[in-house]
Amino acid sequence: MKVVFERPKSLQATKTHYCPGCGHGVIHRLVAEVMDELGIQDKTIGVAPVGCAVLAYNYFDCDMQQAAHGRAPAVATGIKRALPDRVVFTYQGDGDLAAIGTAEIVHAAARGENITVIFVNNAIYGMTGGQMAPTTLVGQKTETSPYGRDPQIAGYPIRVCEMLATLDGPSFLARAELTDVKNINKTKSYIKKAFEMQLSGKGFSLVEILSPCPTNWGMKPKDAVDWVKNEMVKVFPPGVFKEPKEG
C-alpha cells in the first residue's frame, strides 16, 4: 500500500490546543511537511510567538525558541547570525507581527535577514479572547470593536505583504488563503518556496496565510472558511508580491 497521507515526521504526535476548525493546525502541518520534503528538520530552529501559537514549541519536532510578543524576527535574527548554516523560521500571528512587532518585522525584512516568516492572518486576537487586530476588517465586530471597526476611531487594516514589498530586502513575499484543497496546496507551495529562498541564501521570505478563526469570529468552521473566501480576500488579495527575477 502506498501512503497517500500521514503525519509528517517534523510534526509531533501531540494533540494541539487549537479550537475546532482553526487554521493553525493545517499551517503547522504544511510547515512540517515542507521541513520533511526539504530534509531540514535536523538543522531547523523555529521561533514561536505570543498568541494562540505560543505553544508551537510543543508541536513542531525541531529545536524551538519562544519569543516575547512581537520579537520573533529579532530572536530569529540572533539565532541566524550566530548559526548562519541553520534554517530559522518564525511563526507569528497578526497581533504579534503587525501590531506590537511591526518594527521587528519591517527591519528584519529591510535587512534581508535570511529567515523565513510564517505569518498567520486571521484578523483577530485569538488567545486573549477576540479583540481587534491590526488586520481586522473595517466593520468587523470584535470584543474591542463591538460596533464594528470604525476607521474614524480605529483606522484601517494593514496589508503586510504590500507594505514589505516596497523594501529591497525581501526575496519572496506571498499571500495565500486557507480555504479549499487547491489553495491549501498553493499555501504549501509558497511555504516551500520561502524555505528554499533561505536555503539558497537569497534572504528574507514571508508567507502570509489568511486563516479561519471560527471561535472568535463566532462562526461554524465551514462558515469561517467561507468568510475568508468571501470577505478577507477582498481586503487582502492573495498572490505573490515579490520573488526573484528569473535567470
Partner: peptide
Amino acid sequence: GFCATVCPDVVFTIYREEKGG
C-alpha cells in the same frame, strides 16, 4: 486525500493500493 488536506488535526492516515501491488 482531500479530507487530510483540510483537516487541522491530522486525524487521517490514507493508503492506496499500488498498481500490481
